[in-house]
Design a protein around this nucleic acid. Structure first.
Lengths: 242, 242
DNA sequence: GGAGCGCCTTGACCAAGATCAAGGTTTGCC
DNA sequence: GGCAAACCTTGATCTTGGTCAAGGCGCTCC
């Protein structure tokens, strides 16, 4: 997705139509008057990889559209074991209505561009616009479906199946050419091996070995350890276990 | 929770206040006029344990309050591996707005009493009442939080921690005396060992061994293999890993 | 260029939990 | 009560993935 205009410009609807394109952003739910009001209070920002967003006063107490890049949501046990519990790709919406405190860490996985709105503004709009609340409900239900899919993966799939499933998921979310039914894909992994491990409930070594195995078996090609090429998505999907 | 009145009686608000008590039911969001309308179309039913609810025409295309008992939501891989992705305790709401087909199996884990409303009626009410949609959003976000908690458990906890966490969760949801801060608990497990395994991503044997170990170490007592007594919840919580 | 760091890969070994197998307990039904 | 089926426990053994250790690649910063 390309952002054609800075959000401060007068061309807000373009940005918002862009969010709307994948039916997830907040902006698409608002009428033009609301959009102008929103634009006055919004701010666009670019953040590098590996930055903690919660804890940053600019972001806490705000809602954002992810314009580009990948944001990871993680939870930790007291001894440091970590689990990624959500990945937000552009143009996902980031923010948690009705709850200020959260036990979830929010961190950029790649460089990220955000368009943020103050929490108070958004919450006022939710009150005024049932359509916006409806949209938030749909997003929450989508995330719930994804979370449940993921639980099956964490609880019941083998390491090999987990890694294959992860690649398929990333291909669908990242590769601009892969309209879910494409037969090949080529993309950069937005996560380090360590993040992939935290996503899949595996160690970094196991992730590495499974990727090596997929490469050895000719299912994927790996360039620079981050760029993945899948010539035949079908073969990869066969290894997902479902 | 005790249901004081059949839902067909004139005393609907009592039932609904009862649902409302834990801030989850649908009924509490409705005003008295709506409730009367709803009552005309609702039906109360009792279902034994181990009954598939989706696939049952009475329930498909309907929404229900769980009045008593436990309902499990499961997903399966093609080779039969199964994972429980959600447990609904009374007085949870059961039903999925905006989606008829679902890849989720819904099955009673224990004997269950349900109060069901036709989908069309509820969906009309959602349109009319923003408050109801608001409530559904809150429930969806709660379920999302639970799902994420669970993902940490599936991905990062040891078998011993999983079983301890499971017992704590059940104690909080089932034991009427345990107001979350109680120091002891006594309850019947609503799931078989096999279900517990599907919940925790473990085999039945591992579940059994871990329970035996907790008993051997004096953390729990087990009667009839289904009834659990925890004298000191603190000791159990210490074994949850978080 | 090279030192240092972060990230990734590979190998040897280990242990947690799965699998296989047998037998015990509970429940429901006649 | 007696039988069968479902459920649960326990033991022996095996496998998957974790742990520990070493080294390689690709950066950035002097």
């Amino acid at each position: 997705m390309t952002i054609r205009q800075d959000v401060h410009s007068s061309d807000i609807p373009v940005l918002c139509q862009s969010c709307e394109a994948r039916h997830r952003g907040v902006c698409g739910a608002l009428d033009p008057d609301q959009l102008v009001g929103l634009a006055r209070t919004s701010s666009k920002q670019r953040v590098g990889a590996g930055v903690e967003l919660v804890g940053d006063a600019e972001i806490v107490g705000s809602y954002s559209n992810v314009l580009s890049g990948v944001v990871k949501l993680t939870k930790s046990l007291s001894d440091g074991r970590q689990q990624i519990v959500g990945l937000q790709f552009a143009p996902d919406f980031l923010g948690r209505p009705f709850k200020t405190e959260s036990e979830i860490n929010v961190e950029t996985a790649t460089a990220v561009a955000l368009c943020s709105f103050p929490k108070t503004v958004i919450e006022r709009m939710i009150k005024e616009s049932p359509e916006l609340e409806h949209r938030l409900l749909r997003q929450a239900l989508n995330e719930l479906d994804e979370a449940r899919e993921w639980m099956v993966m964490l609880g019941r799939k083998t390491a090999a199946e987990k890694v294959a499933s992860f690649l398929v998921m990333i291909a669908r979310n990242i590769d601009p050419c892969a309209d879910s039914m494409a037969s090949s894909a080529s993309f950069d992994l937005p996560l380090t091996r360590s993040d992939i491990g935290d996503f899949l409930g595996l160690t970094i070594e196991t992730v590495s070995r499974q990727l090596t195995r997929l490469r050895a078996e000719g299912v994927i090609r790996i360039e620079n350890s981050r760029h993945i090429i899948v010539d035949d998505m079908k073969r990869l999907e066969l290894r997902c276990g479902d």
